[in-house]
């Protein structure tokens, strides 16, 4: 088993939380893992990405080779497209469709939606709306993670375990809420496939 994941978004949108949940689940499953993150200057409202690699054999590079990523998980649609050179043929893009517009030349809303729709293998989810309906707008990143579950090589149960490991110290409410968000994203993805 080997899976290479590009996580994408804008600084502050919670992609490192997604990485941490997957990471916890992978460690519990005794998989090898490498996860390169972005810290420092580029975090401030700029584009951020994380390379997350899981395997049952030792992993060499911290960075994913272009054309080799199995999936792109993005919490922002324009950011999902930025990493297409890394996606392998037939790889999947799982992205939130809610746009984060903090630059003057942000693309036209409809054109961007059309570009996402044109991707051959994609799950495009309105994670903010789903999270809002669940009563916690802050869990939209976990909704996106839920939508990626069919492609991760980890079961929903294993990811629930990851959520428990990561959020356990914050109380049962937080754990429950995130597990609900995870399932909501998962159900959406299944309905799209």
């Amino acid at each position: 088993m080997k899976i290479d994941i590009i996580l994408a978004g804008v600084g502050g949108q919670g992609i490192l939380t997604i990485a941490a949940v997957i990471g916890m689940a992978a460690v519990d499953k005794n998989l090898y893992l490498k996860q390169a993150e972005v810290h420092g200057m580029s975090q401030r409202g700029g584009d951020v990405q994380s390379n997350l690699r899981l395997s049952d054999k030792p992993i060499y590079s911290d960075l994913i080779t272009k054309g080799c990523a199995d999936i792109i998980i993005s919490v922002e649609p324009m950011e999902a497209l930025r990493y297409l050179p890394y996606l392998k043929k037939g790889g999947y893009v799982i992205t939130n469709i809610v746009q984060f517009n903090n630059i003057v030349n942000y693309p036209n809303e409809d054109e961007l939606n059309a570009r996402i729709k044109a991707l051959p293998n994609r799950i495009a989810i309105n994670a903010d709306q789903i999270a809002k309906d669940l009563g916690n707008t802050r869990a939209s990143n976990i909704v996106v993670l839920g939508a990626a579950v069919p492609f991760l090589g980890l079961s929903i149960k294993e990811l629930e375990g990851g959520i428990k490991s990561l959020f356990g110290s914050k109380g049962d409410d937080v754990v429950e809420m995130n597990i609900t968000a995870l399932h909501a994203g998962y159900e959406f993805a299944k309905s799209e496939m």
Partner: peptide, 18 residues
């Protein structure tokens, strides 16, 4: 190396900001 699709033109730079 067979790279994936090129970055679509619609994607703009998003530099860090205050």
């Amino acid at each position: 190396i067979i790279e994936g699709e090129a970055i679509p033109e619609i994607v703009k730079m998003r530099p860090p900001s205050l």
